[in-house]
Design a protein around this nucleic acid. Structure first.
Lengths: 195, 195
DNA sequence: TTTGAAACATACCACTTAGTATGTAATGAG
DNA sequence: CTCATTACATACTAAGTGGTATGTTTCAAA
């Protein structure tokens, strides 16, 4: 019961990497299998089909990873505006988990899959909402502390931030790092105007 | 020489519609042909291959369409900030050329194809830059008229606006119309802060 | 009216695709 | 040890893929 779990995990990890680079629809099962030491029998033993595998990796790998990187840094912050601006900068400049050319795995999947599959759409929607709500809560705490104007609609600002992030990941694919820097600068102007 | 041009155009138009909905890579040539009264012989008579066809439709249909909808409204504006905010609203709410579920054809292609093909990337980059520059020029005229703070970096603001647009199209796919409205409201706050 | 190029139409091909059928090896409870 | 379940491995299939080869029709100039 131990090694098989590792096989299942490896399949999801390899898939995640390939889907990140090539997209879901043009990553074939054969692609996945030939880039690791696993056969088709193993794949269809662990997963009912390709879509179930992708949904599993979203739920079991992408979602927890997102919580760690996007949600946890927002808890217990002293200065929400600074925390949030800094988080956006940290994520966009994170070269370990992201490659500028390929953008953000979550945003990519929203772009590609949400119009094609209700199941994908729902998973991605919930994941995105988790981040949006975390940002909103963070801002609300700042509002309680008087660091943020009381008339600010925190949920709307949170949505605006995630929207900006998604756009930056898109523009980054053609314009490169410059577009990140440029975006971050203007976004921080916006954030400061909320004080 | 007349009817054949119509055939060529029809192929590109049908392709554009299918690619908009399903994406480039998962729209097959057979898909395109079976949704119109044209055969494979005609397709490969007019286009060398699938990619050349897509590049042709970007250049000959998408680009001119973009200029008409995104660039021309910005020429000869009296109040650039208002013009630009209004344009963004008009485009996002345009139900004739866009479907919320499928986002924006240009943004979709950037997302899907720019990491996979230099040729796509260059076409899309040039097209996007055309819009960015038009916005920047519009803002510059406002700056000359004193309607915009002189210290504002118009090119950076233009990039920021297009980035926001791209993000809004992405978020719209999962959150629907509400995310458009919410984004537009916050973006107009940002724009007003440039006066 | 002839004729040759342009504009298609049809049939086919090698390859890839998700998924299945059926085998065999590992493993852990009794 | 034993044996049934688990965890794979191998070989295959039917449908789809981009693209080609080879036709047949259309049409405009001579």
């Amino acid at each position: 019961m131990r090694k098989s779990e590792q096989t299942r995990l490896s399949i999801m990890q390899t898939s995640a990497q390939l889907i990140y680079v090539k997209g879901y629809q043009s990553t074939s099962i054969d692609d996945i299998l030939s880039s690791m030491q696993v056969t088709k029998g193993a794949f269809f033993y662990h997963f009912k089909n390709k879509e179930e595998m992708a949904l599993a990796f979203i739920k079991e790998l992408m979602y927890p990873g997102m919580r760690m990187m996007m949600v946890e840094p927002l808890l217990n912050s002293k200065d929400p505006i600074k925390t949030i601006s800094k988080q956006l900068k940290d994520i966009l400049n994170n070269k370990v988990h992201f490659d500028m050319r390929y953008g953000c795995p979550m945003i990519n999947l929203i772009e590609e899959m949400s119009p094609l599959s209700e199941a994908f759409s729902n998973s991605l929607k919930m994941m995105t909402l988790t981040w949006v709500n975390a940002i909103s809560d963070c801002l609300k705490r700042g509002q309680a502390n008087g660091q943020l104007r009381p008339d600010v609609n925190t949920l709307e600002v949170a949505n605006y931030m995630v929207t900006g992030y998604a756009g930056a990941r898109n523009m980054g694919k053609i314009f490169g790092i410059k577009s990140y820097q440029s975006f971050l600068k203007q976004f921080s102007f916006y954030m400061e105007s909320l004080r």
